[in-house]
Design a protein around this nucleic acid. Structure first.
Lengths: 330, 330
DNA sequence: TTGAAAGCGATACCAG
DNA sequence: CTGGTATCGCTTTCAA
């Protein structure tokens, strides 16, 4: 493999000049430029990134901490990040924390050891304080928490409002007895969605029976079991608001097993709008989280933060997407 | 940030000794070892990976070329790769080729420019010959193609046999008129599945009406449209074999829209066994591709290949998973 | 078992 | 605008 020096020697210039040409750090006379260009072409020279990294102290790499490699939810965000990083000169180094604070911290140390220039954190269990502290060592952009610091920025979507919209919609369709399958109690988004559910019922003077709120865990099996419990409890309800789409899938299957028709007998609404929600039977009405756009924002943000530019983001918003899993009732 | 030299100076040894201690490349006397250890501890010294990379010429990184960041199919494989790489000292650098040969080639060049020590290629449109050529520059392990070379290895699962099993099962359940929704004609796996379908019918002396084979594209919408065409054509059939699960989802929705019950009126069988297939209504009977295990194999393989060790893989196998979308007919 | 010293291949400062 | 040279931080002969 050729080096700057060889290129320089053959082109009859100095290594410094070749470097300047490569990086556009200073003007290079037209003749030398052409000479260098042709030598590079001829040798098929590619600068050694490893050497450049050492010298510049930067790896041109962004660490991305996700919680799951197989979740459609996070996958969308990662695709967005990837998209934003395209052509920026930065490559994403992706690791998963599996919703475990210790593991997250460990993976982040690994990322920092690899000298990532910035970090994108997707949700997780770390405390804001920990992240703020980490941000003294490397710029950080986070999703799923509100953060602000000289080298840290975090935003969430308004899960509370999203939940309100979902419940408003259900009420607008005539539903009064609305069950809620909650997410993990220690999850911020889950809390916000529960609060939105509660407050919206209250706003409409509908009393939120504690019996109608059942615990889930953001997974299909959680949703399935929740509905079984709900059904077993003998409570009456005409609609189910699932804290996320996976939960809705499980709920829908539980209903199917019992021979309950959706939406004719029971309406179901979800939250997230995963790709597959468009193809469930019936297609799921849900609150859309524009995760791809979120990812793009995050990608842009971290690049700008590293470049000391103003972030100037326009944050994506939640929106209700009406499909066919909710029916109007008298 | 501390360097080896500082550590060395404070510990009263040479940088070389510290390096030897760090890498276990040579014996270091017990006293010096302790001295070094305590200084490292005190300074919280972390070796600079960038410098090490330059010196050793290796980035301790594995490039992974996937086709989609948002596909549950590839995501599983990536999780497997990640799992295998865990603790190996290698980190995955993931890029997506989006099923586009030019883009794949470009991304691979990017990966090589970043001096990845090895490459894992998940399917894609590149020609085997191109990959073999690439493998002169970097060790490559591929999935979805059969490859063998000094620095290249590729394997597929036996899609043909998987398809045969699916059709055998359908026939065993009494089905005779079995429609097939194909995948992209230029996709190897899709070809194998079609061949398996055809041959199995033939083996049972069932004539495979050309009308019962409709084109799909491995996507939900493709499956949906395929079933609409099938229904419009007036052909009779009691079962649908979808070339992959996404196609089956679309097919299932098309049936739902027409009010056709699954599996009472039409049975549906898929291929892949995505996570969500366990929670469709009804849960989908399908041919399972153990993608996570495939990923693990790939991860192990590339690490071993880099280390010049024998690969010694035991390849995962396809298997039929029976759920509830197929019903026995008279 | 240990240390001195020579790079790895690029960048950037300092003269000119 | 250009070249010489020091330097990034580590690993690795080579000699002792």
């Amino acid at each position: 493999m050729a080096t700057v020096h060889e290129v320089a020697r053959i082109a009859g210039v100095s290594a410094a000049t070749v470097s300047r040409f490569l990086n556009g750090t200073a003007k290079v006379s037209i003749e030398k430029r052409q000479a260098i260009e042709s030598v590079i072409e001829r040798l098929n020279y590619k600068p050694n990134v490893l050497a450049r990294n050492l010298k510049t102290g930067s790896s041109r790499t962004i660490g991305v901490l996700t919680q799951s490699l197989v979740s459609g939810y996070f996958a969308d965000a990662m695709a967005g990040i990837d998209d934003a990083l395209q052509g920026s000169g930065y490559a994403p180094l992706i690791v998963s924390g599996h919703w475990h604070a210790d593991e997250e911290a460990e993976r982040i140390e690994l990322l920092i050891a690899r000298r990532v220039d910035g970090l994108v954190i997707l949700s997780g269990k770390l405390k804001d304080a920990q992240i703020l502290k980490l941000s003294q060592r490397v710029p950080i952009v986070a999703f799923g928490r509100t953060l602000d610091g000289p080298q840290a920025y975090g935003f969430s979507l308004d899960n509370y409002r999203g939940a309100c919209e979902a419940v408003e919609y259900l009420i607008g369709q005539g539903h009064r007895q609305i069950a809620f399958i909650a997410g993990p109690a220690d999850h911020l988004d889950a809390q916000a969605r529960l609060a939105g559910y509660r407050d919206t019922l209250r706003k409409h003077k509908i009393k939120a029976s504690a019996q109608l709120i059942v615990e889930g865990d953001f997974s299909e099996s959680g949703g399935l079991q929740a509905v079984e419990r709900l059904l077993a409890s003998g409570q009456r309800f005409s609609a189910i608001f699932a804290a996320n789409d996976l939960t809705a899938y499980g709920a829908r299957l539980a209903l199917y097993r019992r021979g309950v028709k959706v939406p004719e007998e029971i309406s179901v609404i979800g939250f997230d709008d995963l790709h597959s929600s468009m193809y469930t039977t019936p297609p799921l009405t849900t609150v859309r989280q524009p995760l791809f756009d979120v990812g793009r924002c995050l990608g842009q943000a971290i690049v700008r933060m590293i470049g000391q530019e103003p972030l100037a983001l326009d944050l994506p918003q939640l929106s209700l997407v009406v499909r066919e899993s909710v029916q109007r009732v008298a």
